[in-house]
Nucleic acid binder design. Structure first.
Lengths: 204, 204
DNA sequence: GCGTTTCCTTGACAACCGTCAAGACTTTTC
DNA sequence: GAAAAGTCTTGACGGTTGTCAAGGAAACGC
C-alpha cells in the first residue's frame, strides 16, 4: 500500500461513496425527474438500500442538489475542447453547434433534469443558491465560447455574457423539448439557428 | 328569466363551475408548483371540498392541464394592444418591453407554473400535447409582435418565428428567475435586453 | 483475535397522496 | 309538493413517501 492510496482512508472514502451514490441517483433522476424520484426508487436502481441515503446525505434535497452539482461540474467543460482547438471563427461556430446537437441527443435526461430543478427553484428557495451558482458557471461556459469567437472574428461582442447565455439557453431548451417530443428535424434546426445567431452576437 | 339566461342551464353551468374551480386552483398551483399542489391543498384554498374535483375533472392531470390552458388562453392576448396601438417601430419595442417587465412582476406565479409544467412535459408524455399546443400559441403571440415590428421598421424579419420565440423566451425566463430570487436591476436589464435584441431580429 | 468504529440493511412510523363510494343537500321537473 | 336529477361533502381505502431507530455486518486498530 503506497502512501498515495493510504491517504485515501478517512473522509475520502466517504466522499467517494457520496459520488458513487450520486452517480446512481442521477440515472433515476434523469428518468423520472425531481418530484417523482423517490429515495426507494433511486436506491432500487443502485447497489444500495434505501436507508443508506441518510447515512451519506442529510435529506433528499441535499442528495439531489449534490447530484446536479456533480453532473454540472463536468458539464461546464464540455466546450473546452471546442474553444481550445478553434482556429477560425466559422470553425468554432460549426464545432460548437455540432457539440450542442450532440449533447441534446446524448444527455437529454440530464438536461431535462437541470431544467426541472431550475423550475423548482422558482418555488423552493432552498434550491435557489445552488441553481444560481450552477447557472453562473453555465453562463461563464457560454461566454468562453462567445468571447473566443469574438477574438477569432476580430470583432468585439455586442452584448453581455448574461444575454448571450439567455439567448442560447432559450434555443437549446426549445430544441431539447422538441427532441424529446420526437419532432423531426429539430437537431438540424438547432444547428442552423446557432449558425445564424452567433454572428449577430458581435458588433457589425 | 330571459331566454339568454335560461340558455345557461345544461352544460354551461358545468363549464362555468370548471372555470371557477380552475381559477381557484391556479392560486395554489402558482404558489406551490405542479408536484407539491395536492388536491386537498387546492380545495382548501377554494370554496370547495377536496372531493368535488373528481366531479368536474377526471383526475388531477386533467385539472392542471385545464388550469394552465385557461390561463394561457388569456395570456396570449397580452400584447394585442401593444401591437394594435403601435405607430412606430421604436414605440412598439418600448411598449413591448414595458409589458414584458410588467408581467414578470405581476404574474410571476403563473409564469413559473408554466415553466414548471413545460419541464414536467419532458418527463411525462401525457403532458406533451397540451404543452406543445400552448407553446405554439405563445410562439404565434411573439410573432405577431415581431412581424408588426418588421412592418413598421420597413425591414423583413431575419429569422423564423420559432427562433424569435426561443430567444425572447430565454431572456424572459432568465429575468423571471432573477426576479424571484430578488436580484436587483433584473427588470431594467430585461427592458434593455429587449431593446438591444429586437433590431437584430430584422435584416440589416 | 478481540474490541471498536464504521458502514449498511431492515423494518417500522406517521403523514400524505389520488381516488372513489355513500349519502346529504340543493335544484329542477312535472 | 313529491319525485328526479344534479351538486357537493364526508370519510375511508390502498398505496407511497421521507425519515429514522435498531441492529447486523464488515473493516479497522491494537
Amino acid at each position: 500500500m503506497t502512501t498515495a492510496t493510504a491517504r485515501r482512508t478517512p473522509a475520502d472514502k466517504h466522499d467517494e461513496r457520496r459520488r458513487a451514490l450520486a452517480d446512481s441517483a442521477l440515472l433515476t433522476l434523469g428518468e423520472l425527474g425531481y418530484a417523482r424520484s423517490s429515495l426507494r426508487e433511486i436506491a432500487n436502481n443502485s447497489e444500495f438500500s434505501h436507508g443508506v441515503v441518510h447515512y451519506y446525505f442529510q435529506d433528499k434535497l441535499e442528495l439531489i442538489v449534490y447530484c446536479v452539482r456533480q453532473y454540472k461540474a463536468t458539464c461546464v467543460h464540455r466546450y473546452d475542447g471546442v474553444v481550445a482547438d478553434a482556429t477560425t471563427a466559422d470553425g468554432l461556430v460549426a464545432a460548437f453547434a455540432d457539440k450542442l446537437v450532440e449533447t441534446v441527443v446524448d444527455e437529454a435526461p440530464m438536461h431535462r433534469l437541470w431544467y426541472d430543478l431550475r423550475s423548482q427553484s422558482m418555488f423552493e428557495d432552498s434550491l435557489r443558491d445552488a441553481v444560481l451558482q450552477i447557472d453562473q458557471t453555465l453562463e461563464d461556459m457560454i461566454w468562453r465560447v462567445v468571447s473566443t469567437y469574438a477574438d477569432l472574428a476580430g470583432r468585439p461582442a455586442a452584448l453581455t455574457s448574461r444575454v448571450a447565455y439567455g439567448l442560447l439557453d432559450g434555443l437549446f431548451q426549445q430544441a431539447l423539448l422538441g427532441h424529446l417530443c420526437g419532432r423531426e428535424g429539430v437537431l438540424d434546426e438547432l444547428r442552423a439557428e446557432v449558425h445564424d445567431l452567433m454572428p449577430v452576437l458581435l458588433v457589425p
